[in-house]
Amino acid sequence: MHILINSIVIGLLFIGLIFFTGGTLGILRMPDFYTRLHPAGKLDTMGLMSFVFAFCIYNLEHLTWDSLIVSLKMLLIVFFVSLSSPTATHAIVDAGIRAGLKPWTKKNKEG
């Protein structure tokens, strides 16, 4: 049981790490404003989600009422982040379009 929980936790942390690394690379390497926002949004939702799931499961190893409550609070964080982070990305993109910033294309590289 102990090994099972630990391996699940490690797997989830690893997935989160992949997403965080990819997201950070994307923010640094993508060519323009809109494309850079895309990895930033993914990083917040998917990376953080798998991290917090890992913490939840690790916290539930000694199953008591208190640890259950703490895990539920962590899941609430995931819920609110996954609600607000895509909305924030959407709002920033919307503001960029309204301000007249044109998306990057292969022909028009000024973006």
């Binding site: 909305t87 959407h90 709002a91 919307d94 309204r98």
Partner: peptide
């Protein structure tokens, strides 16, 4: 310049 956006 007030964005009207249903999602937000």
């Amino acid at each position: 310049f007030v964005p009207y956006d249903l999602i937000i």
